[in-house]
């Protein structure tokens, strides 16, 4: 399953037939692996990797370090799940280090994010502090460099 997942992570549009050829498996087997991964919540979805900065409708992202008060018997899970439910939240992680949660928020502009932090995130009971850092420029997303590095200058025929 690992190899199939790696290929889909690399290219979510890769057809089962191509995955089968690349890995030396039967197509039926690949389809069964994908179905099982989908059913068990391993494959969560198939989304495109978009470089929004290259479009006219650039989005704004902010990394927000959240200091929170853990709940008895639940730790940080309840508050983290609460935060994660907002549509504005792109991703959310429990962290080691100085802050407890790292929340990545997506908005149309800076004010959008400021409003979300002031009106939604900070007032949540249990949220002690927030520290918002806006993304100014993106160099790499999900393992892919925006400035791609290719082997250049190869001769057309070599021994």
């Amino acid at each position: 399953m690992q190899e199939v997942l790696k290929l889909l992570e690399q290219d979510a549009r890769m057809a089962p037939a191509e995955i089968a050829t690349r890995l030396g498996l039967e197509v039926d087997r690949v389809e069964a692996i994908i179905a099982q991964a989908e059913a068990s919540g391993i494959l969560l979805g198939y989304s495109a990797l978009v470089n929004w900065a290259a479009t006219d409708s650039a989005k704004v992202y902010a990394f927000i370090a959240v200091e929170a008060i853990p709940e008895h018997g639940k730790g940080f899970d309840a508050i983290a799940e609460h935060i994660a439910l907002f549509d504005e939240v792109h991703s959310a992680y429990l962290m080691s280090g100085t802050s407890d949660l790292q929340v990545v928020v997506e908005g149309d502009d800076f004010r959008d994010i400021a409003r979300f932090v002031a009106e939604k995130l900070a007032p949540i009971p249990g949220v002690k502090t927030t520290a918002t850092s806006f993304v100014l420029k993106t160099y790499k997303i999900e393992g892919r460099c925006l400035q791609e590095r290719k082997a250049g200058g190869r001769l057309a025929v070599t021994p």
Partner: peptide, 19 residues
């Protein structure tokens, strides 16, 4: 081959990856 354009080369004996 040299000088021809749009050639797909299967003639290269080296990786296509950068170091």
């Amino acid at each position: 081959v040299i000088g021809m354009e749009d050639v797909i080369s299967l003639g290269v004996g080296e990786p296509d990856f950068a170091t």
